[in-house]
Write a protein that binds this DNA or RNA. Structure first.
Ligand SMILES: NC(=O)c1ccc[n+]([C@@H]2O[C@H](COP(=O)([O-])OP(=O)(O)OC[C@H]3O[C@@H](n4cnc5c(N)ncnc54)[C@H](O)[C@@H]3O)[C@@H](O)[C@H]2O)c1
Ligand SMILES: NC(=O)c1ccc[n+]([C@@H]2O[C@H](COP(=O)([O-])OP(=O)(O)OC[C@H]3O[C@@H](n4cnc5c(N)ncnc54)[C@H](O)[C@@H]3O)[C@@H](O)[C@H]2O)c1
Lengths: 228, 228
DNA sequence: ATCTTTATGTGAAATCGTTCACAATGAAAA
DNA sequence: TTTTCATTGTGAACGATTTCACATAAAGAT
C-alpha cells in the first residue's frame, strides 16, 4: 500500500512516491502522444509536448524521469514508444472490465461513449434497481438487477465500478460493491463515500468545476500555475 | 487579473492568492454544510466538518481564515451562516446563465440534471448543428442552431458555456463562443482548448480519473494526502 | 573526426501548500 | 463572578512540488 511497485522500479533504486499531479499529467501526455502518433509524428521535445498541454518543459522531463529515461539528448522523445511506455505505467496496456451502477442520465452517457473501451476500460455490466430498466438492452448490454450484483461481478471479472445512482443510495451500493471485492470506484454522486483503505475511489464533481468558474469570475482569479 | 478582489478584502489588508485546492475544498464545505443545514444542525466544529470530507481540522480553519473569521471559539461555526458565506465567496448567491453546446449523450445528461439549477447554474440555451436536433424541445428548451450563437448568447445574457461537442470541432465552437463574449467554459471534450487569458476554462476529464484508478491498482499507490 | 547545436536528465533552489502548536476567546459550569 | 473547557485563528515549521540551471549526451553539420 505504499509508493510504487517494483515493475517500474529498477533493482536497488530507492522508490519515491509519485505525486497525484504527476499521474494526472501522464494522462495528458498520453492523450497528446496518441494524437501525434496518429498524425505520424516520430519525435517530440519536452518543450513541444509541454506547450501542447500548457505545462513547462522541465515539468515534462521531471515527470518522465521518475519512471526512466525515455528520450534522446539533442533529439527528444520517440512519440510512439513513449506513448506505450506511459500506457504501461498507467496500467492501461490491458483491458479493465468495468461495471456501471445506475443506468440513468449520466450512466447512459457513459455506456454510449466508445472512447473508454478504446482506452482499455470496457463497460461490460450494467446494474439498476428500476424494474422497467432491468432486462432492457443498452448498447448491447442487458441491464442486471442490482440486488444480485455479487455473483455477476465475480463471474464477469469486474475490477472497476462507476457509480451513477442518486446520492441517497450511493453508499449502500458502494458497500455491496466493496463486499463483492471491487477495488476501484469512480463516483458521480455528490457525496463523500466511505470505503476501506484498500479500495481506490475517485470523485467526478461537476458542481465543483462550475463553482470554480464562478469563483474565478467573481474574484478575477488568475490561474497562477500549470495544473493538470 | 491577480488574486482575490476587494469585496473579500478588508481595507489595507495585503491580498493573498487563494490556491486552487482551497477553492475546491470550499465546494466540499458548502456541500456538507447544505446537508447539515437541511438536517437542522446549528453549529459544527472544524473537527467534525473535516471528518465529513476526509480533511484535517487545521485545513478547514486555514481555508476559512483566508476569507474572514466565521466561527466562535469554544463552539464552532454556525452552519447556516457559514453556508451562505461560502456561497457568497464562490459567487453562487446569484443565478448564472449557462449555455450548452452539443446536445448529445453528455449534453442531454447535463440538461436533465436539476441539481445545477438549484446551485445557481441555470442552463437556458442549447446549441447543436444537427438539423434533426435543432428546433426540438429538451426539458423545455428549444435547441438552437449553433451557427447563430452570438446574438442568442448576448440576448440571453449567457456567461458560462458547457462544451459537449466532439473534440474535433470543440476548438471552433470555443473560438465562436469567446468571440461572442463568454468568459467561462466547462469543457468535456478530450482536447486542450486554447482560450485568451481572460477566459476561464475548466476541463472535465473522465478518462484521466479512470487512468488514475488504473495506475493506483497496478502500482498499489496509496493516497498520501487529503486532496479535494 | 571534430565541432556545433540541441535537448535530456537531474540535483539544488525556490516556491507553494499543509500541518503544527498555541495564544486568544467565548460559552458553560460552578 | 470566576473558573473551566472547548475550539478558533494564525504565525511558524514542515513537507511537497515546481522551477532552475547546468553537466551530459547524441545528432547533424562541416
Ligand atoms: N446527470 C448529470 O449531469 C449529473 C451531473 C453530476 C452528477 N450527477 C450525479 O450522478 C448520479 C446519477 O445522476 P443521473 O442524472 O444519471 O440520475 P438518474 O435519476 O437519471 O439515474 C439514476 C439511476 O439510478 C437508478 N437507481 C436508483 N436507485 C438505485 C439503486 N438503489 N440501485 C441501483 N440503481 C438505482 C435509477 O433507476 C436510475 O436509472 C446522481 O448521483 C447525480 O447526482 C449527475
Ligand atoms: N459520453 C460520455 O460519457 C463522455 C465522456 C467523456 C467525454 N465525453 C466528451 O464529450 C463530448 C460529447 O460526447 P457525447 O458522447 O455526448 O457525444 P455525442 O456525439 O452524443 O454528442 C455530440 C453532440 O454535438 C453535436 N455537434 C457535432 N458537431 C457540432 C458542431 N460543430 N456544433 C454544434 N454541435 C455539434 C452533435 O450533433 C451531437 O448532438 C465529446 O467531446 C466526448 O469526447 C463524453
Amino acid at each position: 500500500m505504499e509508493s510504487i511497485e517494483s515493475d517500474t522500479d529498477l533493482a536497488g533504486k530507492i522508490e519515491k512516491r509519485i505525486s497525484e499531479s504527476t499521474i494526472r499529467r501522464l494522462s495528458l501526455y498520453l492523450r497528446a502522444l496518441s494524437l501525434l502518433d496518429k498524425k505520424g509524428v516520430k519525435t517530440i521535445s519536452s518543450k513541444e509536448l509541454a506547450s501542447r498541454e500548457k505545462l513547462t518543459p522541465a515539468q515534462v522531463r521531471k515527470d518522465l524521469s521518475f519512471f526512466g529515461s525515455f528520450g534522446t539528448r539533442g533529439l527528444g522523445y520517440p512519440v510512439s514508444e513513449l506513448r506505450s511506455e506511459i500506457a504501461g505505467i498507467l496500467g492501461i496496456n490491458r483491458i479493465w472490465k468495468v461495471a456501471l451502477f445506475g443506468v440513468g442520465n449520466i450512466g447512459s452517457a457513459m455506456v454510449s461513449y466508445k472512447e473508454f473501451a478504446r482506452q482499455g476500460f470496457q463497460i461490460v455490466k450494467l446494474f439498476d434497481n428500476d424494474q422497467r430498466k432491468i432486462g432492457s438492452n443498452h448498447k448491447g448490454i442487458i441491464v442486471s438487477d442490482v440486488s444480485n450484483l455479487e455473483p455477476e461481478i465475480k463471474e464477469a471479472g469486474i475490477e472497476i465500478a462507476i457509480i451513477g445512482v442518486p446520492a441517497t443510495v450511493a453508499q449502500y451500493i458502494v458497500d455491496d460493491i466493496v463486499a463483492a471485492g471491487i477495488k476501484a470506484i469512480l463516483n458521480f454522486a455528490p457525496i463523500n463515500l466511505k470505503v476501506p483503505s484498500d479500495v481506490y475511489l475517485r470523485n467526478e464533481n461537476m458542481s465543483m468545476e462550475l463553482e470554480y468558474l464562478s469563483f474565478a469570475m467573481v474574484n478575477n482569479h488568475s490561474e497562477k500555475k500549470t495544473k493538470p
